[in-house]
Amino acid sequence: MAGFLLKRLAQAVFVVMVVTLIVSVAVRMTGDPAMMIAQGATDITEADLERIREGLGLNEPFLSQYLATLSGLFTWDFGRSFLGGTPVSTLIGNALPATLLLAFTSLLVSIVISIPLGIRAAIRRGKWEDQLIRILSLVGLSFPNFWLATMLVLLFSITLQWLPPSGMNGIASFIMPAVTMGIILTATNVRLVRTSMLEVMQSQYIMVARAKGLSERTVLYKHALRNCAIPLITFLGLQFGGLLGGIVVVERVFNWPGMGSLAFDAVAGRDYPVLQSVIMILSTLIVLVNLLVDIAYGLIDPRIRTE
């Protein structure tokens, strides 16, 4: 088991290093930040640009810039934003919790929708209700999320004036972004709940519970559901990664002060330190969650370890 853990950990470190390398190289190809900063000045000369580059630390060798970025994961020092000089750690310190909170809320929304629907579909297996639930959950998956977001804003913010259209300010402001994100996961989760429920319900111990005369409700929600929990939780771990990657568009529409918005502005402003730190941190988080899922799996099912 220790060997398995070490191997997985080494792989995770390798992945984070390569991802950071890819990102650092890619970011440096997006254009010259000095040009960007000097844009408003008239009669700018190459010497002016060189002076600005020197000030930004862009004349350091690439390797030392890369290592400095990577070491930020341990020192929480990612340098300063090229636009205005705010420490990147301050920006990320604000944006990361916003993104994580939204991601968690989205998972929550998806679970709250999926479990009852999945159970219902399992009970009504093969009936029209089962089909309807599956089709509806696929409709949720098929929405272009920015379009859905726009429609929600039109209805709930502009027409009904119930919910704030943007920003992170109070519980109400979480509803639309979390629903937009959560609905995408619902199709997969309904399916997962349905499949595991079907398996569990055929197991002997549910038969026993039924035979004991427990109410159907107790059987389903207390006994059967508990047994679906493990695959569901594992799967949510994997979805979390996907969620972090896909959150950019939704953050953009709702002006959510998260990592996606930060990255988007950073690309536009050629803000290397911000952009590479955001992607590096999100990647590291995804790797960590996958690692945990892997380890959990390894503990539950030793056969996985050999692979």
Partner: peptide, 21 residues
Amino acid sequence: RSADIQLALPFILLAITIIAI
């Protein structure tokens, strides 16, 4: 290992960076 890397990269963020290039 490619699979690990691909799983770890947030696609849209990478896409906006690459498209900018």
